Each structure stands twice: as C-alpha cells, then as structure tokens.
Amino acid sequence: MSDTTALRRTPCTTPRAGDPPMHRLQVRLPEQVPFAAGTFDTIGPMSRAAFPHRHTFYEIVHVTAGTGAHVVDLARWELRPPHLGLILPGQLHHWEDARGLDGSVVLFTEDFLLDHPGDRDLLRRLGEHPWLTLDGPTHARTGRLMAELVEEYGHGADGFATVLRSLLHVLLIRTARLRGPAASAPPAGRPAAVAEEFARLLGRTGAEGRTVRECAELIGVTPGYLTESVRAATGRTPGTLLREARSREAQRLLAHTELSVRQIASRVGFDDPAYFCRFFRRETGRSPGDFRKHHDRRDPSIEDGVRPA
C-alpha cells in the first residue's frame, strides 16, 4: 500500500512549468478498483505530504491524533483532533509542520461513484465545509465506519467493490448531516462564484451534453472567463470536466439501462454514434459494447484501462 498514491516512477500527470505536482490514484491489481483505504502509515508517505500538490481523486481523512496544520487552497486549519476532512480533485493541499499525524484515509475517483451518481453533487456541497471538528459520539461513529471501509478493502472478498460503494455512500450522507456544533466553520478562501456555479451546473442531469460555450451562457460569463475561473479553482479546464462528465454518464447508462449505443450517444450530446464510440474508447480504453458486456462481473468496477485525467 505504500505506493497507493503516486510516488517517483509511478503514474503522475506532468504539470505545466511552475505548477505543483498532480497526483493520480494507482489502483490495486487485478481488480482495477479506483479506490483505496487504510491508515496514514499503510497508505504511504504521500498521505502526509508536506509540499503543496493536487490530486485527480477525492481524499477523505479521519484525523485521530497529531499537531500542526492542514492547508487546502487558501484555508488553513490547526490540528486539534478528532477531525474529518475532504480534499476535492484539483484542490491544492499539504500538511504543515505535522507531528504524530494518525488516523484513516479513503481515496477514490469520481468513476468509483457509478452506483451513486448523486454522490458527486453531494461531494461538491460537502466541499463548501471541508474540515470538521468532531464531538465524541460522532468521532466514534466515524471511526467505526472508516474501520469498516479499511477492513473491506483489505480483505477484497467477492463483491467488495459494491460494499465499499455502499459504505462510502453512508459516510457521505452522515457527513452531510454535520452542520451543527460538531462542525467548525471553514475559513475564508472558497473558490470563485463562477467556478462554484459551474460545479453546480455540472451536477445537474443533462449537463454532460452541453458545450463550454453553452455553460458560460447559462452562467452569464464569457467562455474565456469561465475557463480562467474554473482553472484557478480546480487546476483543470471546463472542457476536461465536461468530457469526464460525458464519459461517466455514458458508463452509467451502459451499465444500468437497456438503451442502445445510439440512444446513449444522443443522451450525452453526440449526434454521430461512431464519433461517440471513438470518444468512449479514448476515455475508457474499451468500446461501449465491451464495457457493457464486462461490467456485470462479481467485482464491479470501472473497467481496466480507464485513463486518469
């Protein structure tokens, strides 16, 4: 598990000159499940990275011990455990002067949310309050649930990916309820309003079929200004995020409906089914038919060959 997150000579995306490193998830073979769970120790040294970096995946941390601070974008939180924290894809974060850091870590890509597509929007909303200080009972409940995720992932028994998705869904729902005394208010430094509006738009049904220009018009800004705002907040472009949303929705429809490839192509904004098939193969490494044929295996996951952004 020491190489779960990308280290030297493991798959990292190449940043532009002057940009911080962008790490992606190294999935476990042979299941190819884009998910990992463990302690700070078993996940590896990158889970305590003291230098600013970004991920292409989500990270949930349950901090049970330690001193120092956790910095996300422009927000800085002093460590006074227990905490529950969320780092979104594209956010810049690092651990500052951390000593004795301990707890559990869960890592997953948006592809892993195939069974619960509504969780993507829930995660974006949770990102508005990404650092929570837990009271005693909440800390205990969270610890038990995180322990179940770690145990299930470690055993890898038949159907474990489905169980992991269900446990993760419960964790997100329970976290969304923490908006009272158990939740500490986040400091200043939230993303720009335009980027937040784009994230909300991206979470709506049918958004994956829109172009960047159409999204900009709905928000009331120019395409150039939308691109600048989203890149500043996430490190990625609106076009990249829309392309990934198209791919995720196509995978969901292939896995869970009887719609034809032509119908699915139209649903996600492609007039030409052949062009859609080329797009889908480029994004996932499989044809739509092959994805549909193999998706109902006992250990369901995004099929091997999915290319991280």
Rank of each mutant, 00 (worst) to 15 (best):
Q32K: 11
L7V: 11
L92Y: 06
G159T: 02
I60L: 12
L242K: 01
L241Y: 02
A176F: 09
V221M: 02
E151T: 12
L201N: 08
Y225M: 14
F280A: 00
S184T: 15
R125M: 12
L172Q: 06
R54G: 00
T56C: 05
A49P: 13
L241H: 01
D41T: 11
A36I: 04
R190M: 14
M46F: 12
F270P: 01
P273M: 04
A161H: 07
P186E: 05
G154M: 09
R125Q: 09
P223W: 02
G127H: 07
I87S: 05
H94D: 06
V72W: 04
E152V: 13
G118S: 11
I43W: 00
W95R: 05
L113I: 02
V150C: 08
T211D: 02
L202V: 09
T175I: 08
F160T: 05
I43T: 07
Q263L: 12
L226M: 02
P191Q: 07
V61P: 10
L86N: 04
D3P: 12
A207C: 08
H139M: 12
E249R: 13
E128N: 10
Y58P: 08
V33H: 06
H155G: 14
R16H: 13
G100E: 01
L86V: 08
C277T: 03
A188H: 15
P130G: 02
V63E: 01
R282F: 04
A65N: 08
L253N: 03
A183C: 05
R120F: 14
Q32W: 15
G44V: 00
V106D: 01
P20Y: 04
G289V: 03
V268C: 03
R298E: 15
H94E: 08
R28Y: 13
L101I: 03
